[in-house]
Design a protein around this nucleic acid. Structure first.
Length: 431
RNA sequence: UCCUCGGUAGCUCAAUGGUAGAGCAUCCGGCUGUUAACCGGAGGGUUGCAGGUUCAAGUCCUGCCCGAGGAGCCA
């Protein structure tokens, strides 16, 4: 394959001639000198063209280019402190590939609805570029964490016959005359693969037809879910904090430029080191009381509570031992207090709230059967899952890490809709 | 589903019930170091839809549609 040059590696080619292939993000001219803002998908660079270097004809053609026109630019790489990023390209020649129509997204501000309607173009802008590159790094770091520790990655199905939980609203679809649902989580299937492979994880979309309309919700979001045989609650918490620390460390190391583009305070991220604070649900209820927030034991934390609590800590923290009433049927009960479960949620600081949820699963056949019945779940659809307790049942557990929430927190951005290439939300299916 | 706010030029917004404007974008002209460049000029409107009040409605009233924020809900 021929030699290609990318902006990301431009520092390796100072004073040599390269050709870059990409798009024009903007331009400024001063009569006989032209500044072309250029991107190639790996970064952004300014190209400087003067009439004396490239000739009148090429100069006029370049001056007439519209925003988002595609072109190949040949020139010499210069280190220049005046340029953002430290380098610029001194243009010797350029080849126009396509002259774009008038581009709808300008450099001035736009409303949320307008930008979401133009998401297919919006992802070209520098802020979205930074966020989505960080997303890719978060995924890569998480997968590397598991792959390098002997986990087997096993995909779980997206089309399922039953809900993971009876109460939640599901997207349903026709499956050759039978109704099927889009998965909310790979967890139940993970438990089956964990009994076959020991340590497993899955990475895929979770779909929920909830009519949630907040910055913390998408109807289609991605989860990374490990499941470990012979693991107890303490093991699960160790994995959670190690995983999250590794993810944040990788982003700090490999995506410093992107974090800078987002003006993210990296001091906060550098504090993300084990051990994370661990508190029980009951301690948390007391803590809320001390902060003057009324809260009745047995309820689940709402947005307000999570915000108050998460401002108490300077790094992610874990809340354990939630009451049975607020957790799903498969959670193992606390042997010391049967009102409680061996569950753990991790909450991100700075008001970001829950980013991980998990815990130990029910081991005993009779306990699980009772839970399924109490939840009024269709027994037939869960028979395979119950089977896992008939054939070599062992203590096991795992968790789900909500990718978009982690990306939002790491990037320090307000709304989940910017953390996924094409967000799916209530009333937004297009583009 | 509930509460709040909004819908005016391509975009972001302004306009005491009395001639619909500005900035950006676009087009034309100027400028050899611009950083959301700058300077001068031009074009650009079914004020979300339907009805009502009024001499007169972008503005007031009623209904509907659409969007945003929040709540509820939510591994």
């Amino acid at each position: 394959m021929r030699q290609r040059y990318y902006i990301e590696d431009i520092g390796e080619h100072v004073d040599s001639e390269v050709t870059l292939e990409g798009w024009l993000t903007g331009k400024r001219s001063s009569g006989k000198i032209l500044f072309l803002q250029f991107r190639d998908g790996t970064g952004f660079i300014q190209c400087v063209a003067s009439k004396s270097d490239i000739g009148e004809e090429a100069f006029e053609a370049a001056a007439g280019l519209t925003v988002e026109s595609s072109l190949k630019v040949t020139g010499t790489v210069k280190a220049d402190s005046r340029a953002p990023g430290g380098y610029e390209l001194s243009v010797m020649g350029l080849q126009i590939v396509h002259v774009a129509d008038e581009y709808p997204i300008g450099r001035k501000e736009h409303g949320d609805a307008f930008l979401l309607d133009h998401r297919h173009l919006w992802i070209r802008s520098s802020r979205q570029f930074a966020i989505l590159r960080i997303r890719a790094t978060v995924i890569s770091a998480a997968r590397d964490y598991f792959d390098s520790r002997g986990y087997t990655m096993l995909d779980t199905p997206i089309l399922t016959p039953a809900a993971c939980e009876g109460t939640t609203t599901l997207f349903s679809t026709d499956y050759f005359g039978e109704s099927a649902y889009l998965t909310q989580s790979g967890q139940l299937y993970n438990e089956a693969t964990a009994m076959a492979f020991g340590k497993v994880y899955c990475f895929g979309p979770s779909l929920r037809a909830e009519k949630s309309k907040t910055r913390r919700h998408l109807t289609e979001f991605w989860q990374i879910e490990p499941e470990i045989a012979f693991a107890d609650l303490s093991d699960i918490m160790d994995v959670q904090e190690e995983l999250v620390s590794e993810i944040v460390g990788r982003v700090l190391k490999d995506r410093a430029r992107e974090l800078e583009m987002l003006e993210r305070d990296t001091e906060v991220l550098k504090r993300v080191q084990p051990p994370f604070p661990r508190v029980t649900y009951s301690e948390m209820v007391k803590l809320l009381g001390k902060n003057g927030v009324e809260f009745e034991w047995g309820n689940d934390f709402g947005a307000e509570h999570e915000t108050v609590i998460s401002q108490t800590f300077d790094r992610p923290f874990m809340v354990t031992h939630f009451p049975k009433s607020v957790k799903p049927f498969y959670m193992e009960l606390d042997p010391e207090d049967e009102r409680l479960t061996l569950s753990v949620d991790m909450l991100a600081p700075e008001g970001y709230g829950e980013i991980v949820g998990g815990g130990q699963r029910v081991t005993d056949l009779a306990v699980l059967e009772r839970s399924v019945d109490e939840g009024a779940l269709p027994r037939a659809d869960y028979e395979w899952y119950i089977d896992l307790r008939r054939f070599g049942s062992v203590p096991h557990g795992g968790f789900g890490l909500g990718l978009e929430r982690v990306v939002a927190w790491v990037c320090g951005i307000h709304h989940l809709r910017e953390t996924i290439p094409f967000p799916r939300m209530l009333k937004r299916l297009r583009p």
